[in-house]
């Protein structure tokens, strides 16, 4: 099975990158690609609980992240070091994503057939 790694590195709503990354993930999964989704850098802000996107007139990124498992995308991670850099705590982040360290991230990169970074 083809392994695709999607890395989402931007904060939600400021640009369309978070949305574009999620749409790519769903489309890939729909045609049978095995998707691993990693939140890195500012992308971790997408995982914050209690997002209200109505004030920025956008669909909620948090809600769309929660749909990933229903599309058989169970490998959803964030990079622990980036969480520390951003002074976030794991309690504030959605439980859909699991914490990984840089080593594990490097391994994911190494075993993927393709990588897309948004």
């Amino acid at each position: 099975m083809t392994k695709l790694l999607i890395i989402s590195t931007q904060a939600p709503y400021v640009t369309s990158a978070a949305q574009d990354a999620l749409e790519a993930a769903l489309a890939a999964s729909n045609v049978g690609v095995e998707v691993t989704f990693v939140f890195a850098q500012q992308g971790l802000y997408q995982l914050l609980d209690g997002q209200d996107s109505t004030c920025v007139q956008r669909k909620s990124i948090a809600k769309q992240i929660n749909v990933l498992p229903l599309y058989d995308i169970d490998a959803v991670y964030y990079i622990a070091e980036d969480m520390i850099d951003l002074a976030l705590s794991s309690q504030a982040l959605t439980s859909t994503a699991e914490s990984i360290d840089t080593n594990k991230f490097n391994q994911l990169c190494a075993v993927s057939n393709a990588i897309l970074r948004f």
Binding site: L26, K59, S60, Q64, N66, V67, L70, Y71
Partner: peptide, 15 residues
């Protein structure tokens, strides 16, 4: 309402 995206057919069927 829960996910702000409409399910693809296979996801709809599974759910």
């Amino acid at each position: 309402e829960e996910y702000e995206t409409s399910p693809a057919i296979r996801v709809l069927v599974k759910s």
